[in-house]
């Protein structure tokens, strides 16, 4: 009690710093700290899958097809979602991705779109996100 009385000015400042830091560290709406760390899977290529590799993944798979033109030819066992790439950051979509208990696979008719969306999601702190690479015909 005496401590609190003596340092009444220090504690609010400290609490403010703690709140700001926690918000920075765990914010769902912003990019996370350390761009290099979140971009790492793209440098090693571990975020890229081919269709055969899907079978080797474990956990609840969520397949997101970006845009209408993208469709998976092959029968796919698991959850699928169709999201317009521009609206992937909408609250309900983000919730669905973050809540998914397993790998999330991005698929698009254009590898460009998957790659750009992947980098945005990954830098927002989402792990276990993959790109299904489209092999040009």
């Amino acid at each position: 009690m005496k401590f609190i009385k003596q340092y009444w000015l220090v504690l609010p400042l400290f609490m403010l710093a703690v709140i700001l830091v926690l918000n920075r560290t765990f914010s769902q709406k912003n990019f996370r700290y350390d761009a290099v760390k979140w971009a790492e899977p793209s440098a090693t290529g571990s975020n890229i899958l081919t269709e055969d590799q899907i079978a080797t993944l474990s956990g609840e798979i969520l397949l997101i097809s970006l845009g209408n033109e993208a469709s998976i030819d092959r029968q796919f066992q698991g959850n699928t979602m169709n999201i317009n790439p521009e609206s992937i950051l909408e609250k309900t979509n983000l919730m669905r991705i973050r809540k998914n208990n397993g790998p999330v696979i991005l698929y698009s008719g254009d590898n460009s779109v998957s790659a750009r969306v992947w980098m945005v999601l990954s830098e927002m702190g989402m792990k276990n996100i993959y790109i299904l690479k489209k092999i040009p015909a």
């Binding site: 990019f31 996370r32 350390d34 521009e86 969306v117 945005v120």
Partner: peptide, 28 residues
């Protein structure tokens, strides 16, 4: 304050400064 810093994974790396919504619509 330095106690908070000691618990953070500090590096010299930078972080994204753009707003996610704006960045997404810019790059698409």
């Amino acid at each position: 304050l330095s106690l908070i810093l000691a618990l953070l994974p500090l590096t010299a790396n930078r972080s994204f400064t753009a707003k996610p919504d704006k960045l997404l619509s810019d790059v698409l």
